[in-house]
Simulated assay, not measured.
Amino acid sequence: MSVAARIKFRHLQCFLEVVRLKSVSKAATLLGITQPAVSKTIRELEDALEVSLLDRSKRGIQTTAFGDVFLRYAGASVTALRQGVDSIAQVRAKGGAAVVIGALPTVSSHVVPCAVLNFKAAATGTVVRVVTGDNAVLLAQLRVGEVDLVVGRLADPEQMKGLAFEPLYAERVAFVVRPGHPLIGRTPFRLADVLDHTILLPSPGSIIRPLVDRLLIANGIGAVPDPIETVSLPFGRAYVRASDAVWIISRGVVADDIAEGVLAELPVDTDMTRGPVGLTTRADTPPSLPQLMLMQAIRAAAAEPAP
């Protein structure tokens, strides 16, 4: 068993009270246990650490050099634990608190629904509000506190000032069509063949639009003639299923549709569009307990295999 595993809360509590009161007897009275029990607990702690923490002399009880160092961390640990307990008690007592998530389309169909489902199972009484929009709008709302956290692709550096980003996974774009599309199974498949059909491109303000433009240019495709620009899943899904259009979109937006056979993915190498998806929060504002719990649920959902 490791040293840390051998140290219990009672060890820290006894040590802190003996140091604060400079007396084993007073600490025993305060803790409601016997003096021998306090002395035994301190010995167990010192044995686990293999150092002497307290100097017991005629001048009373003083901390050793090791005790001074340990005191800082023991106090911080107990304080953090008490704050955690108090935070949970406050959430359980008040209820009705709200957490507002800004969700980009890439996480709206899988990660965020799974995370919210697991979070609500904890029965914290917290109201979860999910808002969508383009990245610039959601980050602006995050800065002024209208949104508590944003889940989606990493924004450009100039948009991230004052914000913190935690990467969760990497994602690329996909070229998707309806089942039975003329391009499915075509041999050889050439990317230029998509120009024979209507192209649905990401909106100009979206994070992935510059990545898609670079991908097309790298494959010898310049301006796309007469495109439709959208990141809307309902519109894109309906339009593609009703036509021979080709939709270029973040794969996370359509991953469930691909897995269920509602849409099909063309064999296009899009690795150059791969980029991080994660949590964006305000760098200067510590998250509340409900926010921390929801963030953990999002991490767990993001770690699950994609469809």
Rank of each mutant, 00 (worst) to 15 (best):
A4E: 15
K8T: 14
F9I: 12
L12V: 08
L21K: 14
K22C: 07
S23T: 11
S25F: 07
S25E: 08
A28K: 09
T34Y: 00
P36H: 10
R43K: 12
E44T: 00
L45Y: 07
D47I: 01
A48S: 15
A48M: 10
L49Q: 08
D55P: 00
R59G: 15
G60F: 07
I61F: 09
T64Y: 05
A65E: 15
F66S: 12
G67D: 02
V69E: 12
F70E: 01
R72A: 14
Y73K: 07
A74T: 01
S77P: 00
S77V: 13
V78T: 11
A80H: 06
R82Q: 14
G84C: 07
D86C: 02
D86R: 11
S87G: 04
S87L: 09
I88S: 11
Q90W: 08
Q90F: 08
A97K: 11
A98C: 12
A98W: 00
I101N: 05
A103W: 03
S108F: 00
V112C: 03
C114K: 12
V116R: 06
L117V: 00
K120V: 13
V127Q: 13
V128Q: 05
R129K: 14
N135G: 09
N135K: 03
A136F: 02
V137L: 14
L138M: 11
A140T: 08
A140R: 09
E146M: 14
L149V: 06
V151N: 02
G152L: 05
R153C: 09
D156R: 15
M160A: 14
M160Y: 04
A164K: 07
F165T: 04
P167Y: 01
P167T: 02
Y169T: 06
A170S: 14
E171R: 01
F175I: 07
V176H: 03
R178E: 12
P179L: 10
L183C: 12
T187Y: 09
T187H: 13
P188A: 07
P188S: 11
L191P: 07
V194G: 04
L195H: 09
I199C: 10
P202L: 07
P202W: 01
S203G: 10
L215M: 14
L215V: 02
L216W: 05
I217G: 00
I217K: 13
N219C: 07
A223I: 13
V224H: 03
V224D: 04
P225S: 08
T230L: 10
V231P: 00
S232I: 04
P234S: 12
F235M: 15
F235Y: 15
R237F: 11
A242N: 05
D244K: 05
S250N: 14
R251A: 06
V253S: 08
V253M: 14
V254H: 01
A255N: 08
I258N: 04
V262C: 03
E265Q: 13
L266Y: 08
P267K: 05
D269I: 06
T270D: 05
R274Y: 01
V277H: 06
T281E: 11
A283I: 06
P287K: 02
Q291V: 13
L292S: 15
M293I: 15
L294P: 01
L294I: 08
Q296H: 12
A301T: 04
A306V: 12
